[in-house]
Design a protein around this nucleic acid. Structure first.
Lengths: 198, 198
DNA sequence: CCAGATTCTGACAGTGACTACCATATGACT
DNA sequence: AGTCATATGGTAGTCACTGTCAGAATCTGG
């Protein structure tokens, strides 16, 4: 790796860290991009070259956790058992989440106070779901409407979101893995009051 | 209803219609709030008094469709059959959607081209899911983590979103009601490759 | 080690969404 | 009519974000 890439990594990290510091200290809305740039000792234009929006500064980690697992799934051989693979995808996302609990809690904390952050977080999850759907359709060559693929992707998304949300809201509660187990078992045992067909 | 409320309704409607006109003609991003205000012959500050954000101009109808059904659910007697009630909630949302198909298609069309709209649409759906969860917890007095309520709400949200999305993407395909039936049956028959517990 | 190509940086000027504020106008009520 | 409450629209300002560009830093080939 050349000196260029090294500096790039370093600058990116520096900006991100300073931003998080300012956000947690003074709040997302009360921190301007200019202040972040100043704290990181770069120009605002440089900051925007690394992070397209202010929200990205906060959400990058979560986004990477999600899409990293999706990339893994894409690389898996076609024809493998889909339910198992989806469970693996969930496990990989949750592993990432658990690898940096403070960061994730901080993200959710900020998102709870800032509508625009919450919207962008949701948006990332939603985009992830859509891409997962595409990948499932590619594998199953589903029917025209691809309803089953959409439901499988949506359910996978739900499980992840619910586990993370519950875990964030209960700092002294069960671990991520325990919650995931419990949630999956609830599904398997039909213990959920789902809407019914007539 | 006094003259005041009448004018308010009329102004609101006028702004909303003009906005939609401009958005569909020139695109969401290429239309400024100032232009909308000018077209509706009001000042920008007046526009902002009716619609807190530019996105609201587009999403209000969808949002009303969702939260109207939620309000209905809240008014239902406690102790009713939850799965049936959730199916009713779905039916009511979809009824609203079907009551103005062009508007809904236009919203999704715009959202497909505009990331910020897509994010706000998702955000509305997400907020709806959260409030539905709260209502389910209130009714069931669920356990501490409320996993089942969260899953039921998430699944309900998924079904609605999937039906609407599929319906929007296939103008000549099945009706909303047919899609809803099909989706609910897929669930009941365990025909979806869901993630599995170990 | 040097010259030229490539990429990175930060400054400047601008757009547009959104906020706070206030004088004026308009419907509501007696 | 006169008074009160609310609606309006204008002004000034903040801030996220974009486009551009000259100069600085890094890389590459000789």
């Amino acid at each position: 790796m050349g000196l260029r890439e090294l500096k790039r990594e370093r600058t990116r990290r520096l900006i991100s860290d300073k931003a998080f510091e300012l956000f947690t200290d003074h709040g997302f809305g009360r921190t301007t991009v200019e202040q972040i740039a100043a704290a990181a000792e770069v120009g605002p234009s440089t900051l925007y070259r690394y992070f397209p929006t202010k929200e990205t500064l906060v959400l990058e980690f979560v986004e990477n956790s999600l899409f990293g697992a999706l990339d893994w799934f894409r690389e898996q051989p076609v024809g493998l058992d889909v339910p198992d693979a989806l469970e693996q995808v969930i496990a990989r996302v949750l592993d990432q989440i658990e690898s940096n609990p403070e960061r994730v809690r901080a993200v959710y904390e900020l998102a709870g106070q800032t509508p625009s952050l919450s919207a962008h977080l949701t948006d990332a999850i939603w985009r992830w779901r859509k891409e997962l759907t595409v990948e499932l359709v590619r594998r199953e060559a589903g029917d025209g409407t691809a309803l089953t693929a959409k439901l499988a992707a949506g359910t996978t998304m739900n499980i992840i979101e619910i586990v993370v949300e519950t875990w964030v809201d209960h700092p002294d509660g069960p671990t991520v893995k325990q919650l995931a187990e419990e949630t999956l078992h609830l599904f398997r045992d039909n213990a959920i009051p789902l809407p019914r067909a007539r």
